[in-house]
């Protein structure tokens, strides 16, 4: 998250349902796109509130799988043609025995591409955490962070308190 996006107000909730209600209310108030959550488990219905964003991991999986399948067949058939030996009365180019290699590499490349897709799209890698992140979020609390301009902070703070946050913190960049 950019420095600008790290400035805002954080509401800490001890009730998952209230946190979802809070996100809904804040979206209605016009903060959609400025809200982020921190949760050990996404509360029921929470991710649906962020439905604008669809995970592109599936495209990585598909691309990896197809690439693996092609690699498997090319490797097996290519190497077999290099050694042009007839085994069991079958031509080196016969595709059936190479289905196993093609299948295994489809799974291997598909799985690894999914991992890459996860890393890139979930922005995993650097261990730095958002300035508003609190260790309680990985245990029993849900954080709802609204990035906003300083002049709106008081308003958001009031809203979060009204929406049931047990603690509200203002974060400056």
């Amino acid at each position: 998250m950019s420095a600008k996006r790290s400035e805002g107000v954080l509401g800490i909730f001890d009730d998952p349902h209230r946190s979802v209600e809070a996100v809904r209310a804040l979206k209605k108030d016009g903060y959609a796109g400025q809200i982020e959550i921190f949760a050990a488990v996404p509360p029921h219905g929470m991710l649906e509130e962020f439905d604008v964003y669809k995970s592109p991991v599936k495209y990585f999986t598909l691309t990896g799988g197809l690439l693996g399948c092609i690699t498997g067949f090319v490797l097996a058939i290519g190497l077999s043609w290099t050694w042009n030996l007839i085994v069991g009365g079958k031509s080196p180019g016969v595709p059936l025995p190479y289905v196993v290699i093609g299948f295994e590499l489809t799974i291997l490349f598909g799985g690894l591409a999914s991992l890459i897709g996860l890393f890139l799209n979930a922005r995993l890698g650097p261990p730095a955490l958002h300035p508003a992140y609190d260790p309680r979020f990985s245990e029993d609390r849900i954080g709802v962070f609204v990035s906003c301009a300083r002049e709106k902070m008081a308003l958001v703070e009031g809203s979060l308190r009204k929406l049931g946050a047990e603690e509200v913190r203002v974060e400056y960049a």
């Binding site: 921190f38 996404p42 964003y53 261990p127």
Partner: peptide, 18 residues
């Protein structure tokens, strides 16, 4: 090893799909 995991909506959505 946690790779900056914070349980954000983006992380959970991509994680669940992957």
């Amino acid at each position: 090893l946690s790779l900056g995991w914070q349980g954000t909506s983006r992380q959970w959505r991509n994680y669940n799909r992957a």
